[in-house]
Write a protein that binds this DNA or RNA. Structure first.
Ligand SMILES: [Mn+2]
Ligand SMILES: [Mn+2]
Ligand SMILES: [Zn+2]
Ligand SMILES: [Zn+2]
Lengths: 130, 130
DNA sequence: AATTAAACGCAACAATGTTGCAATTGATAA
DNA sequence: TTATCAATTGCAACATTGTTGCGTTTAATT
């Protein structure tokens, strides 16, 4: 039984997530932490937070990877079955907690995880009418 | 109006796609071509084929990127709204042309593209019961 | 305060993708 | 068929992202 520690770096990363309304990439987190810790440490913290079900990973069509806080009430086992929206203009990625895809799978597959990402224009960029 | 050319390398890449039942990564394609062309060339061919709507790109949760042939009857504009399945065991990625998610979006978003990837165990790996 | 496994920093590495530029080549028209 | 020329390629160089090994530091428990 591995115990997990609340280190300074981990707390700082969590605070960055708290402050952010959108999902964050490793690089964005690193910049915000302003050399509080090594970039390798951030990768390791993100891994741990994912295992602890505190954040989830979002993989985007353009290849970028971001992370966002889970805001279910900390149930242990859960699937992140909500959609994510990736704006092609401002490149912000937001969780759409209320958008959940329904679909019918062939019966001979076992689904463990789903990744549903939509891209296009977010409300902000849609208004400012490029 | 840019014209597009059917070069030897492009034809070879297309043939690799024809032969494959599953989606392919850049690296897998490069290996199958056996140094017929430079790896940069393959990236550029893939870009062109995507623009021509001949193949589509699949971005997986684990960060890997694969490509698969489009098998709609070459309509010009279309959305790849079918699901993709990524096996956690054999790492094969297949298009599930018949699985299309239905979902309800808030009205203030403009959706241009969707990426719906499921992961778990494919029929093969589910049977051989690891 | 001593203990000790978890976490860290650092350096080195691997994988993936991009860019600039000179050389080559497919498609078209003469 | 041959000349033309933009599309395509190869190559080298670079950027970004993520991983690994290992010696050192540190959070949490006794
Ligand atoms: Mn989310
Ligand atoms: Mn597909
Ligand atoms: Zn936007
Ligand atoms: Zn499988």
């Amino acid at each position: 039984m591995k115990t997990t520690r609340n280190t300074a770096a981990k707390m700082a990363v969590l605070e960055v997530f708290e402050k952010s309304k959108t999902a964050l990439s490793h690089t964005e987190i690193h910049k915000q932490l302003n050399d509080l810790c090594d970039r390798v440490t951030i990768y390791r913290i993100l891994d741990r937070l994912i295992n602890e079900d505190v954040i989830h990973k979002i993989s985007n069509l353009d290849g970028t990877v971001k992370y966002a806080k889970c805001n279910h009430s900390h149930q242990r086992v859960h699937i992140h079955n909500h959609a994510h929206f990736s704006c092609e203009n401002c490149h912000e990625i937001t969780c759409l907690e209320n958008v959940k895809p329904s679909y019918i799978m062939p019966h001979n597959y076992k689904v463990n995880e789903i990744n549903f990402t939509l891209s296009g224009l977010c409300p902000n960029c849609l208004n400012s009418n490029i």
